[in-house]
Amino acid sequence: MPPTSDTPLAAGADADAARAQAPSSSQAPDKVVVQDLTVRYGDKVVLDKASFEIREHEIFGIIGPANSGKTSFLRALNRMDDFTEGMTVEGRVSLDGRDVRAWRNVYALRRRIGVVFPLPVGLPMTIYDNVALAPRLGGERNKRELDRIVEHCLQRAALWDEVKDRLDSLGSLLSGGQQQRLTIARALSQKPDLLLLDEFSIAVDPVTTMRIEDVLKELKHEITIVLVTNLVQQARRLADRTAFFLNGECVEVAPTEDLFTGPIKDQRTRDYVEGRFG
């Protein structure tokens, strides 16, 4: 996400933006394309031949009970398997039309993808350093520019007012809800064009959850968001389209409202969203 909306997102974002604005039909271009994606931990298959697309500037929901492969998909998307013992990925995930495995610099790939975990992780450094870390790693040295990024990202994450007077205190000692917003601010500081949220509201109180949801609704005008959630209603409130994962299978992908009231392919989807299991 750019600090000001008129600057380019990232080095490679011009073309993306151009494509995004290209007068296509009602349907936005694909941001992420998943084909026959299979993820294993050791011998255990946690995601089996999933195929779907995520479109630009949408909030794409992924719902499903625990252990259905939701998080594994996110980890395959930013190639965490490179660093994870025993995790293997087959099939293809492409970002902006390019297979993520074709990236020679996996770190550059990950910098374009912001991730927010289920359990908030405030790094054991100051709040300021937490948010300034990604720009610094990217080579930003200018103190004023860093100040601006930190303030901007904290404001976007609805945390600025609470911490602006104690930016020097440890990020890892904030409350759970604050740490979660700090994590979001940190993800935004990477200027990602894809933001992955993995059950972010688990450790957050309802009021904060609502505030973050409002932020997401605004953010989707600038970036693409994948929202993994175990709260069906949260997906209904936010997601444009939603996928239903069950036991490692991508059962259904449809406009969110269809999952609840519209035509569906698989009865299990309706059973899940109406709370009959899971």
């Binding site: 930013n78 770190y107 990950r110 910098r111 991730v115 975990f117």
Partner: peptide, 10 residues
């Protein structure tokens, strides 16, 4: 902490 950093592209 490590995963958080890796996810940021560190």
């Amino acid at each position: 902490f490590r995963e958080a950093c890796w996810n940021m592209g560190a």
